[in-house]
Design a protein around this nucleic acid. Sequence first.
DNA 1: GCCTAAGCGAGACGGTACGTCTCGTCTTATC
DNA 2: GATAAGACGAGACGTACCGTCTCGCTTAGGC
Lengths: 208, 208, 208, 208
Amino acid sequence: MAKTEAALDADPPATRKRGRPVSAQARRAVLDAAVGLLDERGVGGFTVDEVARRSGVSKATIYKHWKNGFDLAAAAYGDIVTTAVPVKDTGDAVDDLGGQVRRLAHFYASARGQVVAQLLGAAPSHDQGTATLRDTYFSERRAATAELIRRGQERGQLRPDLDPELTIDFLFGPVIFRMFNGLGPLKDTDARTVAEMGMRAIALRTQP
Amino acid sequence: MAKTEAALDADPPATRKRGRPVSAQARRAVLDAAVGLLDERGVGGFTVDEVARRSGVSKATIYKHWKNGFDLAAAAYGDIVTTAVPVKDTGDAVDDLGGQVRRLAHFYASARGQVVAQLLGAAPSHDQGTATLRDTYFSERRAATAELIRRGQERGQLRPDLDPELTIDFLFGPVIFRMFNGLGPLKDTDARTVAEMGMRAIALRTQP
Amino acid sequence: MAKTEAALDADPPATRKRGRPVSAQARRAVLDAAVGLLDERGVGGFTVDEVARRSGVSKATIYKHWKNGFDLAAAAYGDIVTTAVPVKDTGDAVDDLGGQVRRLAHFYASARGQVVAQLLGAAPSHDQGTATLRDTYFSERRAATAELIRRGQERGQLRPDLDPELTIDFLFGPVIFRMFNGLGPLKDTDARTVAEMGMRAIALRTQP
Amino acid sequence: MAKTEAALDADPPATRKRGRPVSAQARRAVLDAAVGLLDERGVGGFTVDEVARRSGVSKATIYKHWKNGFDLAAAAYGDIVTTAVPVKDTGDAVDDLGGQVRRLAHFYASARGQVVAQLLGAAPSHDQGTATLRDTYFSERRAATAELIRRGQERGQLRPDLDPELTIDFLFGPVIFRMFNGLGPLKDTDARTVAEMGMRAIALRTQP
DNA sequence: GCCTAAGCGAGACGGTACGTCTCGTCTTATC
DNA sequence: GATAAGACGAGACGTACCGTCTCGCTTAGGC
């Protein structure tokens, strides 16, 4: 397709704009400061003023890049989860999904996991908040996980009647729920139990 | 000492203290105003100032009863969930739990359900927030649901190896997760599917 | 008249309001800080933020008392002119007015005089600015000076056809004009000359 | 290219330097936009950003020509006063000066007059502000008016002991003062009165 | 029937973040 | 080499809410 060859150099030259280009350095400094602040004080202690102070970037510039504090916090922590809990595909969907649940629960029990939980929680109180999170946090990971499920179905490891998206909610929902119901993050042993329960519902050959 | 004689009429019942008694009317007015405000504007638009304005009760009085705005909001919406989605025990644990999941999902899809989700979400950003919610929202319902599960186990309807508490997280987690991941509340048909998936993992006589 | 006796205690009791009374101390601290800041940096360096910082009074409180920075600055410097250049009435209107012109010119040549000039100048760029100055700075002094002129007319020292208000503009206008036209404040000798010119136009027996 | 031939009618005296020549057109566009903005919004609503937007000239270029916003505003309105109130010399200094006072008062009562007053007022708050105004607004007109006075003295129409510069402050000061003291611009009848008062102080043949 | 606590409405207060604005500088690519 | 476009650091603006703190008034039991 023409797209393949042309796409590479078609846009970039046209993207060259007239004025002073956006400072990647400023952007980086803001994100770093935001991560540091979230690490130290969580969402409750996160303020744009403080990010500006730490990063040396002016508030005006920050608000030019992110439409509000929540948007910035979400972006700053954007790839934390992905990095901390990468989606793996070893060929055994049951093992992969179960491990994924356990690793995610483990992450949410960590300091950064708590912050991510605060971010998830804050989303519904902000305009477009959950949409922002969907695009920033979940979109990519869900796509990869859905693919994992689909391949598991093709291999005959998972029930063929599963809706991949619903299955994701089904498997990981309990992990997130624990962040909000006052019982605290799932402990590793409990996470293992929950993962096993989930597997019983979706795997093909697991009747005890 | 007065204490000595007072022992006769016991402390709890004769809590009659000196000064002017707490105004139950003020308390009621505040809670009503808070509910109205949450209904109209959600958690994002909820302010103690506005509650004081609407209720005609002074801020000082409000803060005497509730330790902060979140605490008030939680208390105001306290029995909304319980009232909207009562726990039923018909003798068939599988049916009861499945229905519970579906009814809860249906509630969370409603306007007030969204507000409850915002409250859950806001909890981790407040000191003692999740503990408050645990006591206000979940404690009673979880106890009832755990009892349901235990009876189901005794009757042989549910697997005997289930940890009731974990099972609750497992069943209802997916419903809550959907409030935060940007995909929107579960639709009724999807809720039914999720409930069925859950049942496969916990019921004894599951058809493959 | 009933008014005479009743007036004294009629209002005061009614003035007792319900809530926490306005803190005279906070008000004083703000005005003192504002004067200090104007002294140090002039109108150009005057900011409400800095006043709040110096006075220890919160911005919210400041904005509750004064509707904007200009209003505060005007109030803070309110009686500076009156104190620095009191209106005197010795019985000789010509001497009094001439002296007044000279003293006013002398004041405007001082550091605080320059600041007052900046305030006058800034007024037309603010909503209701000149009206604020009229009430804060000029009203009282003009009334006293107009009275001086009227008495001078009665005593036959000043022309009887003078409009007191216009006469005030006529006499003091040149002093103010010099603050804006780039020639700098009037020097004492020039102020004397200008005062004499003015007197020639308004005194009755002064044809040389 | 038009550019090549254009060299013929381009200012020949201007030294042909390397690179792109200074755009007289840009300069004109900026001044026009500035005048329009001052007309519409006054000094309070005047911003360099908006001038740049309207004129299509970049801020950097604007700041290359004028050292700050005030400087630009002053330059833009530079010849407004001169054009609106030209200095006339008919041979009768008393008539000329009196008329000048009246015409100036009339101008200051107009919309553009108010803007000029705002500019005068803003000057002391800017570094070198009054000096800028002196050179831009007053210098030429004062020179012409001083010449008028000097000729009046030579003709025996005005007192010979007058200092021309001081006399200018004396005559026109009241007109400007009214722009700042909250009483509003002089009305025509009052301006006539003020002019007559001034003449009594400087003319030789004054009727008592 | 006073007395003396509380509880209460009103509302001012210190603190502090919000998101916006303007200033004057700077950094590119273009003319 | 002068421009247009426009991003940037600095920092003030006025508003909003938080939770605390006086006040003066109201309502009760204790004396």
